[in-house]
Write a protein that binds this DNA or RNA. Structure first.
Ligand SMILES: [Mn+2]
Ligand SMILES: [Mn+2]
Ligand SMILES: [Zn+2]
Ligand SMILES: [Zn+2]
Lengths: 132, 132
DNA sequence: TTTTTACTTTAAAATGGTTCTAAACTACTT
DNA sequence: AAGTAGTTTAGAACCATTTTAAAGTAAAAA
């Protein structure tokens, strides 16, 4: 894998652990996941990693822009491998998230940004509940 | 105060504690707050309430539709007295939220809702960062 | 290559927000 | 007034996340 190079390009030292995680997360298939989800996938891949390292790596990956964290009021942090700006459906009952491409939403009117600030990203969450 | 009546109309038994909270929250001025913020305001008002009761009441108020909880990836739950459907600016550095009226945002295009579900609310969060 | 340095991983403990427990209390009904 | 169902509370428990500090490792310097 050239995930070693991806990590270096992101300014991260390519440790054994980060490569394991990059191999799982940066394979082109997008997903939403928790730290615990990831630790399970690491186990399934035949490796073992402390939960502290999983969290450390997720923070580094996030700050490096390799993954994102999703806004949600669940008590568990949810991460997202889809780096392209996009939005979400949120199943309020299960917490499941589904991606919405930016081109499926059109925000034609935005409020004035408060003085001294700039818009650093817009998140749209469409909450879903079961029909009937 | 007719907060006693407001509570009854919301289907909540108007206990001493709920009236204290209603007097603080339901005064017409909208705000975003945490459970701890509220407990402090209760102290300032000359009263005393266990944190368990603060959480119990917030959950009841929320389920009764008197307040809302805001989507946010901070580790602390943020509640909102503004019941009218609206959106938020989020200062990413401080976590501060500012209301955006619905009429300041115009979503002209929405994606198809997944089969079997209905749209139960759209939240727009405009993240802010300091300009230069 | 060896040495040095800074960074990373880890198990275990700590933290902090939130929920649970179970006993005392209180609003409402009869 | 008595009964009952719901509420409050202190403190314990819970659980996701962070911290600690010691051991390990990648990169830089010599
Ligand atoms: Mn959250
Ligand atoms: Mn927490
Ligand atoms: Zn996504
Ligand atoms: Zn608001």
């Amino acid at each position: 894998m050239d995930n070693k190079i991806k990590l270096r390009n992101a300014g991260l030292r390519p440790t054994k652990q980060r490569i394991i995680i990059a191999d799982i997360l940066l394979n082109g298939f997008n997903r939403h996941f928790t730290a615990e989800n990831l630790q399970n996938e690491i186990s399934i891949s035949g490796n073992k990693m402390s939960i502290a390292t999983v969290y450390n790596c997720l923070k580094k990956f996030k700050n490096a822009g390799l993954i994102k964290q999703v806004e949600s009021y669940t008590d568990t942090a949810i991460f997202d491998t889809n780096n392209i700006s996009h939005h979400h459906f949120l199943n309020e009952e299960t917490g499941e998230l589904i991606d919405i491409n930016n081109n499926e939403i059109n925000l034609v009117k935005l409020p004035d940004i408060p003085k001294g600030f700039i818009n650093s990203g817009v998140d749209v969450i469409i909450k879903l509940k079961k029909n009937n």
